[in-house]
Structures are given as C-alpha cells and as structure tokens.
C-alpha cells in the first residue's frame, strides 16, 4: 500500500512544528539580548544570566520548587504504581468505578477547581484538627502528589497492558508466590515506566502555577509563582534567561527518558526474537 505522506500532510506537519517551536526559539534568542526592552535587539550579551544568578529570591524559589518536585515525584510514582497495578491486574473489585473515576478526573479537571477545593480542604482541616498548621511546602507537595499520581497511573497502566502477563503466569506456575512474582518479575519489568512516570511527575510539579498559588501560604514562592508575579507586569529579560535554562534542562531530561524507553523496547524486542527462535 502507499504508505507515503501526501504533500498536504507534510506541509501541515512542518507548519505545525514551526508553530510549536519558533516561539520557544525566539524566547531563547532574546535571552541573550543586551537591551532591557525584551523585543528591541541591543546586541548579544549574557548580562541577564548574571542578573538572574545574583537574585536571592530566584535561588530560594528554585530550591523550594526542586524540593517539592523531588518528594512529589517519588510519592506520586509509588502511589501511581500501586494504582496502576490495581486497575490493570486486579480484575474487578468493589469501588473500581469510583477509583477509576478519581484517577481520570485530575487529568482533565480545571486547575482552578482543584486548587480552590484543596485550599478549602486544608483550611477546614486546620480548624478541625489543627493540621496543616501553616500552608506552604507541605500543602503544595500534597496537592502536587494528588494530580501527579493520576498521570503516573496512566503511564503505568499503559506499560502493564503492553507487557502482558505471560512471564508472571510462568513464574506462578513454577511456584513463585504472588509477592515474589511482583518483586522479581513485575516491578523490574515495570521500571522504565516508573522512571518516565517519575520524570513526568517531577516536571508537572515544577510546572504548576495555579494549584500552588491556591494552596501556598505567605512567603512560600515556588518558581512558577515567582515567574508569574514578574511577567504579569510585562516582558522581563531576566525571565527569558531563566526560561532558556528551564527549557534546556527539560529537553535534556526528556531526551534521556526517551532513550531509556527506546533501549528497553529494543531489548524486549530482542528477547522476544530469541524466545521465538528457541521456542
């Protein structure tokens, strides 16, 4: 069959990708602009990077955001893996529909609703039991875990269904107990999915503005909160410099994750070929 792209599809792909990438490329180029006015070109310079590195509040925001993102990613991966196992491997159980609904809803729920509801929840709980005493690091982390775990679950579910169950069944037939099957076979095979889930949760947390703005307290500024408060007033060259660093960092992380996934896929394809030859 004719499996080639038609000219129309190629043109759409090229213009679509141009649309996606040109704004970001310009953002990066203008971060090296000497001029204080972002869109007016004043020659190449790295002065805004120095300005950025010298401002203490940026460093504070970066360290708070990284701390939240690390803890969030770890907990969301654990919870998301459990949820994925429950949804894919446990068949029907009581409350499965509600559980599935609660796992899908955070993916599409408008952020303002999630943020507002978590804030009123934290405030009501503080009145009831005195916890959380103050809003900031803890409340943002809890909020992030809640929506990140839904994304991790999607990845884990896809990986689990893609893996199939034949190896687990073989191990069980050979006498391995369910827990042994889980630790010796399922989890190691699930590892690439857990790595990409962890990375996704990490970047989602670094990226979140709206929910963090709702549940944060005085003084606890994450990086997006800081960026937002600055760019609301207009374009700022130091934010362009910050954006460049973030974009490069994310691009490198995503490339590594893609490479890990690609390698794993290849290894499995080879394993299957060997198995097919020997069988």
């Amino acid at each position: 069959m004719n499996n080639r792209r038609s000219r129309f599809l190629s043109i759409m792909l090229i213009s679509g990708l141009t649309f996606l990438y040109v704004p970001m490329i310009l953002l990066v180029i203008y971060s090296f602009n000497y001029s204080k006015l972002v869109p007016v070109w004043g020659g190449w310079s790295t002065r805004w990077y120095y300005v950025l590195f010298e401002s203490q509040d940026v460093w504070d925001a970066v360290s708070l955001s990284l701390k939240i993102a690390l803890i969030n990613a770890t907990f969301a991966t654990i919870l998301g893996t459990l949820a994925g196992l429950a949804m894919v491997r446990f068949g029907r159980f009581r409350g499965r529909t509600l559980f599935g609904g609660m796992l899908v809803a955070p993916l599409v729920m408008p952020e303002v609703i999630t943020g507002l509801s978590l804030l009123v929840f934290f405030i009501s709980f503080k009145q009831l039991i005195g916890w959380p005493a103050e809003r900031g690091f803890t409340t943002i982390t809890i909020a992030h875990i809640t929506f990140s775990l839904a994304y991790v679950t999607v990845i884990i579910q896809a990986r689990l269904t893609g893996m199939g169950q034949s190896l687990e069944e073989a191990a069980a037939d050979l006498g391995a107990k369910p827990f042994k099957v889980l630790t010796a076979i399922t989890l190691p095979r699930l590892a690439p999915g857990m790595v990409s889930g962890w990375l996704l949760a990490f970047t989602l947390s670094l990226d979140d503005l709206v929910i963090a703005s709702f549940v944060t307290g005085p003084g606890a500024n994450t990086l997006p909160i800081l960026i937002f408060s600055r760019i609301r007033l207009g374009l700022r060259p130091d934010i362009n410099a910050l954006a460049t660093i973030i974009i490069l960092f994310v691009a490198v992380c995503v490339a590594i994750a893609a490479l890990i996934m690609f390698r794993q896929q290849r290894r499995e394809e080879m394993d299957q070929q060997i198995a097919a030859r020997e069988g």
């Binding site: 704004p23 970001m24 310009l26 953002l27 203008y30 972002v38 869109p39 670094l206 990226d207 503005l209 997006p224 960026i227 937002f228 760019i231 207009g234 374009l235 934010i239 362009n240 954006a243 973030i246 974009i247 994310v250 691009a251």
Partner: peptide, 12 residues
C-alpha cells in the same frame, strides 16, 4: 516544557 513559559513566549 513549562506551560507558563510557553505562554510567556507569546507575550514577546
């Protein structure tokens, strides 16, 4: 990549 920064890119 950051949603906020992608919106910011269009401001420029």
């Amino acid at each position: 990549t950051s949603f906020l920064l992608r919106v910011y890119a269009w401001m420029g």
